[in-house]
Design a protein around this nucleic acid. Structure first.
Lengths: 249, 249
DNA sequence: CCATCTGGTGCTATTATAGCACCAGACCCA
DNA sequence: TGGGTCTGGTGCTATAATAGCACCAGATGG
């Protein structure tokens, strides 16, 4: 009997009969997609706190579906069906397509700054767009790195929208002083509707409740922060507008 | 007892104990991501040939995870967690990040033509990149439309890599004449390693076995087809090279 | 060679699941 | 307005899927 790990992300009530296999499997799939490289089934089980046989079976199922692939080193890597899932979920999400024109416009308005759009996965920010100044726009897409959420304005904004008990659970094991600082930062972000981190990155939420974070990074002290914030908010608003159901495909 | 619908996409053996809930749920998730708009649970059940209670439960589970969202019209639409899944799977897939620079280069080499990169989902091509001539590159990403695979060089190439029995099953109900034409086209594509459709779109496979398709479209008769094919193959090779495990993150 | 790890399976007790029957609500038509 | 038909969703329970223990063979390192 597995401990239930479902987290109610949107407030949607749990159905009368949730599907445990689906929940466990999606967790494994996300862990695979987020891993720095091929990962063994026992390794993944330890990371997820799941029984290893279960993970082995779920990974085997993902492999049979092509979403995972066995390597010669007996580990699991991304499989060809992950390309399909990426394409399908990107299409279904519509966030990137809605955001791209506005991100490019913002970038043009703010030369010399990095512009980023990211979402939150556990304790990481996953960037859909991350454009340092001077770099080709194309490089900005499908940015590869995960970034610690607690060290990112985007991460803090998205964490701020979570229940503090959930955040505490997520950051279990973090030294108390760091956790206190983080929670204080989240309270401030929730209050202000923006987050500044390290004096170098300023972010706002996209959507209510927040579905993503939009940020600029660089030498912010040389800039009029009210102007920056206004631009960020306007851009975030346009992106959110583009995601409205009335404009649904 | 559900009829087993697992399709072995990569040839990976089924595990001793595959997880049925995961398989069914991923099918629902993909159907949701591919739908033109919000979809009801019974509607989806009919489309997938699944019992409606099962689909209702799977969709409820996806909703609890935030991957789906209930609409006021009592249907399911994409939920906020789908942005996260899109970002994670795009990261894990690496196809778009590996391909983008090469797609841009190809586009620059072939002004006046559309350049496209797509994957196959059921009977549809899902484009990760679709750049008509003259359009801003950014618009090319996260192209929204699905396209009938049998009417696309990319689709035909990817179908050509499937067992003909699987293709027949997929196109069950198609008039015999159309099916025969399609199968003949697939045989030719498999033999030649390229596909031409409607005289307007020429495609090659990316990867062996093919994980995606790369194509150019437009007035191809004005072009040296050997040169086009060479460029396509070189670009496809570079993309595939970028996906190699030795270069794994 | 031995110890320890790995991915994976068989087996079976247990529990998650499937589907039937039902509910309440929405919608449409006469 | 009422009736019919659709919808999303639940309770219930028989059944089949699942979990986890014990085990296997292979890989790795000292």
């Amino acid at each position: 009997m597995p401990k239930t790990k479902a987290r109610n992300r949107t407030g949607a009530p749990r159905p009368a009969q949730p599907n445990e296999g689906l929940m466990g499997g999606l967790e494994c799939l996300q862990a695979l997609a987020g891993a720095p490289g091929p990962v063994g089934s026992r390794e993944m089980a330890r990371a997820l706190g799941m029984e290893h046989t279960r993970v082995n079976r779920l990974m085997g199922t993902l492999a049979a579906l092509g979403l995972a692939e066995r390597t010669p080193e007996r580990k699991y890597a991304a499989g060809p069906a992950l390309h399909v899932l990426a394409a399908m979920s990107l299409r279904g999400s519509r966030l990137l397509s809605a955001a791209l024109p506005h991100l490019e416009a913002l970038r043009a308005e703010l030369p010399g700054l990095t512009v980023a759009l990211g979402v939150l996965w556990r304790r990481q920010v996953v960037y859909l767009y991350f454009a340092p100044p001077g770099e080709d726009s194309m490089v900005a897409i499908a940015h590869r790195n995960l970034y610690p959420a607690e060290k990112s304005s985007i991460g803090r904004l998205l964490l701020a929208a979570q229940a503090r008990s959930d955040v505490r659970k997520l950051y279990a094991g973090t030294p108390a002083a760091e956790l206190d600082e983080l929670l204080a930062g989240l309270d401030a972000a929730a209050r202000d509707g923006w987050a500044l981190y390290g004096g170098q990155t300023l972010g706002v939420a996209v959507g209510t409740p927040p579905v993503a974070g939009l940020a600029v990074a660089g030498k912010l002290d040389e800039r009029d922060s009210d102007d920056l914030l206004r631009r960020l908010r306007e851009t975030a608003g346009r992106i959110a507008q583009g995601l409205r159901p009335s404009m649904q495909r």
